[in-house]
Nucleic acid binder design. Sequence first.
DNA 1: ACTAGCGACATTTTT
DNA 2: TGTCGCTAGT
Length: 731
Amino acid sequence: MADADPLLILPSMPSGTLSGTAALEQLLEGLNPAQREAVLHPEGPLLILAGAGSGKTRVLTHRLAHLVYSGLPPERILAITFTNRAAREMADRVRALLGDAGWGLPWLSTFHSACARILRSCAERVGLTQSFSIYDQTDSRRLIKDLLEEEGYDPRRFPESRIQGEISAAKNRLLDAAGYRARGVEGELEEVVSRVFARYEPALLRANAVDFDDLLLHVVRLLERDDRLRDHYSRLFLHVLVDEYQDTNPVQYRLLQLLMEGRPGPRNLAVVGDDAQSIYAFRGADVRNILGFERDFPEAKVVKLEQNYRSTQLILEAANGLIVHNRRALKKRLWSDLGEGEPVYLIGLEDDRREAYYVAEELERFLEEGGSLSEAAVFYRTHALSRTFEEAFTRLGIPYRLVGALRFFERAEVKDVLAYLRLLVNPWDRLAFARAVAAPRRGVGEATVAKLGELAVLHGRSPLDLAGEAQRLEGLSGKPARGLEAFATLLRSLQERRSGGMPVAELITAVIAESGLGQALREEGVEGEARLENLDQLVGVARDRERELAGERLSLEGFLQQVSLSEGEGEEGLPEGAVTLTTLHNAKGTEFPLVFIVGLEEGLLPHFNCRGEEEVEEERRLLYVGITRAMRRLYLTYAFSRFRFGKRREDQLPSRFLEELPRGVVVDPQLDGVGVGRTQTSSFAIGERVAHDLFGPGTVCGFEGEGVVRVRFEDGAVRTLLLEYAKLRRL
DNA sequence: ACTAGCGACATTTTT
DNA sequence: TGTCGCTAGT
């Protein structure tokens, strides 16, 4: 049977490798029984419920290595991670496990990268060419805004971000424009969404472009439509592994289903996840995928990893105590034998600046104790919070690395240059055309671009193509027309060099020099200098990529794809021995001996925009993720006054989650020195609602030692009260 | 067509 | 705080 399909013939093990048993023993060394079970599970579906810090990555990488050692060709194993960073990390670790025996590596990538790769190979079948562009969220919004205006709607009444969110959510639920409408349209907003959606899809196709959602959706539709193609991929991937399964959305779920359908043998799908760490519902992720795995795959083997190897007990107890406040959870309780460790430090500060300086002080203390800055991290809910810390750290000379914030590839000048490159690859890319032609200004304005766009649609030619003969076109003349032609000439000349095999880095240099962008920036003074440096960096990135390929040529398409999927964002260039500053979302999958979670206030965590219990539960999980990153020492901080929206807010209250932390685990060292649980001796907890005979209702917001409590009342004032005299009632 | 200057307004979180 | 969009002026 197998010989009917050449893809199913398994090659024998390459010679000259370790003998099977020796390699196996090495691979299993140091794994606990549950981990071994997960690594060794031979065939059929596998659900690994892996609590935080339970050695999940270890299990995944060892399982991958084990599959390869058992003779499976690596290129027939697909391993999906949630971020490119995770994919890189895993690739490194698998490579280390496999040694230099000349094995290849499995397909290790995100859903998006994997689908981009698949889609490249059969783009024509969905009406795209192989060199389609990938639109990020900003691009997609811009396009939607154009369409909104074309439809005569006011983008202020119907914000494009809102519309984009709705469309994306629909796509994540496998709905196209027709499906969205068919589902029933209620209210004005949905009507607008429906109309724009119907125009958005063809607009993308005309631009020979896809958005992030399309990468997956196109592939799913293709596999649904075409049995042969589906069989090809479902037979190609003998084993599929998915990390962070709790964060998969319906499209991703469908994709996995399709890959499991129609295969001759067992359904070799191994998923790893933790429902307590599901923090991407806002992006369409559906925890039910992991909760329902056993229903979908009744023959599934389930392995629970509950021993935590990362954190000391008190930290874990804080995490456990917090997460039980969520209603829906798979039963599992993390434990650790790393000893009780230090309590969790809960610190309230006067304002955000003091919060930053407090963190800095404690960092210095950590250094004096022999720690290093690279072992420490600061987590916050929103990027906006990073600034105060950056300022404080800069002033104090503490090196830091900022992860994920205003991304390099999203800077205006970088996007300008990328627009040129995108246009070289895909002349139909309407957004790239509009961007490049306007950077720098060359006498071609918005009106001209719009006009040209219309003509392009009318003639069925690309905007770039038409630009070359602008002076002959109706309605175009003078400076705009000459500008367009000059632009077209420039691109033709770049195009020639590109087809002549000019390396990407040199091509970028040429764009900067010949477009006039470099010139324009040089004339801009200090800020322009900084931007020019960014462009130099872009050249550097391309050079690095080229070097990584070691001899193989980096294609412009490949470079652009990496950039669009944020793959290029390496850790290179970031200082070693620096504190990590990052969002709680970005913290997932990391661990640090010393962790600060800052800005733990109502409105920040949970965030204002959270309405309803479901969303609050997701915020709680977010804090849970943060807490479980900490190995040895954890600080939770909040401030009563914070600079936000350009104004100082004096009425910040500690997050409700803080009061949910179990008593006896948390301590406030500013108040009562050492001693677990002392904070709670006042019998009130931070965040608790109380009433005072004179001042009325208020919220406990801090302590000043034994029997002294600080309460913020509804008139906004914070009063320090002696419990002995003030008859506070619990509300 | 384009720029400077001004006021309004915003912030989740990511592939 | 910083970005974005609008207006008026060149």
